[in-house]
Amino acid sequence: MKTVLALILTVLVLWQGMIWALGLPPFLLPSPQSVAQALWLNRAEIARHAGYTLTEVVLGFVIGSALGAALAVAMGFSARLTSLLRPLLTFSQTIPVFALAPILTLWLGFDMAPKIAMTVLIVFFPVCSAFLDGLGRTPQAALDLAQVMGASRGRIMRHLRIPAALPQLATGLRLAAVYAPIGAVIGEWVGGARGLGALMIHANGRMKTDLVFAALLVLSVLTVIFARSVALAVARIWRRYGV
């Protein structure tokens, strides 16, 4: 905690120092003080937008994780499906998903749907690939034992492979939680008038750089809190499996 405080203080000092030293005008780099002021003056509006963004993040995260985990299990069942989809998954990682934002807006309109879809896309891949990786790593000895015991594939999945893959799933979820807000905000940049992303674009267009920074600050805090909550929740749920 002490180091975090020291870090924040250092950043603030450097920030203010840079403005003084270079004589930067406020529309290029607002001072910490004016950002704090913008944050306070616009608190109601910022809170409203943040709530909207958070809703998208949570919904997108839940849907994306569920879809990713479900596909991983389906692929875990079928080697054929895996060999078919794995290259596709890898390939989909190489296209910048952000480039899809305008298309999603075109297809899904200006409401929450395209932002949630964007978040789902961002969350889906890390969850699916980490979980699939884990599902493929059940110790062979355990699988042999299960076979000799006369287990069905479904029960092997449920009692051995899925529990054994929970640590990898947790890794995927933690990673996805960090990226999820980025997905939502990119979606908001492209279309619509609500959410922190939209607020930033709007303020930027009117040279209200202090408000842009204020929104950015709130977004960062929101991301940290969301990622921490997911990590804690995951750790808590998993603990009863002893993993």
């Binding site: 000895a141 355990a142 034992l145 015991m149 006369g150 029960r155 529990p163 993993v243």
Partner: peptide
Amino acid sequence: PVALMAQDAGLIPWLDVPGNVTLGARLRG
């Protein structure tokens, strides 16, 4: 019908002793 036991006990790390002992029953339903 066969039962198997190997050098590595092959216990399931997240199951307690009765959980491991009864694994076969659970795997067969």
